[in-house]
């Protein structure tokens, strides 16, 4: 049993300091309040202890002023904490535009990661220091949760829908990677290490591994042919399906008049359940690929379609993007945010 144990977790990301500041503020506040209340209870219990059997307390039993004071102060502190906490949370939810794009697939009971260049890993993740890393994640079965305690970030990984988590590591080393959402028998074994490397070391690590034969975009292009997507989606107009060049990040108008922004979540839905949202001016001809393409391959197709809009800024992933998607259609409920 190791006798020197930590009381505070390693802080290894740009986010860690912000979360720790909240935590330390709250710990100090709680200690102060607990001591104040505990002290007052203790003081009164001793000072006003019963001295004779038939003694009774005073008749002082109300003060509007006190009630206002001790409602207003907690209210003010709580509101402050709300705004402060929301600010940190928004930062945690919005990956920077230049983040390196990783993908993760959770399944009972392992994490499968893919690097931007196609390199793959299981239960271990190597990342370069000082670079924002965005992980788009999906589950193949139940709900999992991707948790990096040293980076102070966590996001549930859902079946049927993308969520994203991002961080920028600030300290090289090896840290825990956990699944935080109970997911069955081996839940506590569903994790491993995240290894933060200097950029050159990361490059070396990438080169040293069984180098991926294709980048995810190339693999996606190959799939696009193989699955006969090309027969309908031509590189220019005139195909039975819309041309896919340059659509990523743009608005697309649907046949019911709504506009939605083309992001990862929309692309995934368009491929797996095309009938949910029909592009204006097209027929619902596209066959459903649900259950026929693995999540890995969906990721590749999406990367390929994104590469056709090369250099475009990435719109926020499905999880944090609600400004552009109307919430009215009942059919959305299953895939969009469900407030």
């Amino acid at each position: 049993m190791p006798l020197d144990f930590p009381l505070f977790p390693e802080a290894a990301s740009t986010m860690a300091g912000q979360v720790d500041a909240l935590y330390i503020f709250l710990v100090v506040l709680s200690a102060f309040m607990s001591l104040l209340i505990g002290g007052a209870v203790f003081y009164c219990a001793v000072r006003y202890r019963r001295r004779s059997e038939d003694e009774i307390g005073s008749n002082f039993h109300g003060s509007i002023l006190l009630e206002i004071v001790w409602s207003a102060i907690p209210l003010a502190i709580c509101l402050l904490l709300f705004f402060w906490g929301a600010k940190v949370f928004f930062a945690q939810s919005r990956p920077p535009a230049d983040a390196l794009e990783f993908t993760a697939i959770g399944k009972q009971w392992m994490w499968k990661f893919q690097h931007p260049d196609g390199q793959r890993e299981i239960n271990t993740l190597h990342v370069p220091i000082g670079q924002p890393i965005k992980i788009t994640a999906i589950s193949q079965d139940v709900i999992h949760s991707l948790y990096f305690p040293a980076f102070r970030v966590k996001k549930d990984v859902l079946p049927g829908r993308y969520t994203t988590v991002w961080f920028e590591a600030t300290k090289t080393g090896s840290y825990h990677l956990f699944c935080a959402e109970f997911c069955g028998a081996e839940h506590s074994k569903m994790g491993g290490q995240v290894v933060v490397l200097e950029p050159e070391e990361y490059e070396r690590w990438l080169a040293g591994g069984a180098a991926a034969s294709q980048s995810p975009a190339e693999a996606g292009a190959a799939l696009f042919e193989q699955l006969a997507c090309v027969t309908c989606h031509l590189d220019g107009d005139g195909g039975r399906g819309p041309a896919l060049r340059g659509i990523y990040g743009e608005d697309v108008t649907l046949n019911d008049g709504r506009t939605v922004v083309v992001n990862d979540e929309y692309l995934r839905e368009s491929i797996l359940t095309p009938a949910e949202k029909i592009v204006a001016g097209f027929q619902p001809l596209m066959p459903t690929y649900k259950g026929q393409i693995s999540e890995e391959n969906v990721f590749k197709l999406i990367t390929y379609i994104k590469s056709l809009s090369g250099g475009r800024e990435t719109p926020a992933g499905g999880a944090v993007d609600e400004s552009n998607v109307p919430q009215d259609a009942a059919t959305d409920a299953a895939t969009e945010d469900t407030p």
Partner: peptide, 16 residues
């Protein structure tokens, strides 16, 4: 008081 830790979104991300 520790409930306030959890209601503070940016902190809950870590301790949830």
């Amino acid at each position: 008081l520790t409930g306030i830790f959890l209601a503070t979104m940016g902190l809950d991300t870590h301790v949830h």
